[in-house]
């Protein structure tokens, strides 16, 4: 599965479009991480727990998108976009979407 965030795959030609594929995940931070982040808020700097959490969630959203693309018979996803939204306090939605295509 080839993923790009441009409209084409350089060096290959798109032979078929399958339309939109997407994957999302909503994650809440667990309380331990939140307390630790609260401490780190005093000193500033990177909040590693959150970075990891968001990274994991984003990977999950991407893998769901890839699964969907596989199920329609695509071998690549072009024009992948990410979006993050805080839907509730302490929870965030990670969303990845793109166009499933077949390339040769």
């Amino acid at each position: 599965m080839i993923l790009t965030n441009i409209e084409t795959i350089p060096g290959k030609t798109i032979v078929k479009h399958y339309g939109l594929v997407s994957g999302n995940t909503i994650r809440a931070k667990h309380i331990g991480r939140d307390i630790m982040a609260g401490f780190k808020n005093i000193f500033g700097g990177e909040l590693k727990g959150y970075t990891e959490l968001l990274e994991e969630s984003r990977n999950e959203a991407v893998s769901r998108m890839v699964d969907q693309a596989k199920s329609v018979g695509a071998n690549a996803v072009v024009n992948v976009r990410f979006s993050t939204s805080a839907i509730a306090q302490g929870a965030a939605e990670l969303y990845a979407y793109g166009t499933a295509v077949s390339v040769e």
Binding site: I2, L3, I6, I9, F43, L54
Partner: peptide
């Protein structure tokens, strides 16, 4: 830019990403 230079002979592509969460300190 959206596309690599036309003269580039592309052999492989992939999506890469990097992310970070940072916060300010209490003083700021």
């Amino acid at each position: 830019m959206k596309l690599p230079l036309a003269s580039t002979q592309v052999s492989d592509v992939t999506l890469v990403s990097g992310s970070v969460v940072v916060s300010v300190d209490y003083f700021k």
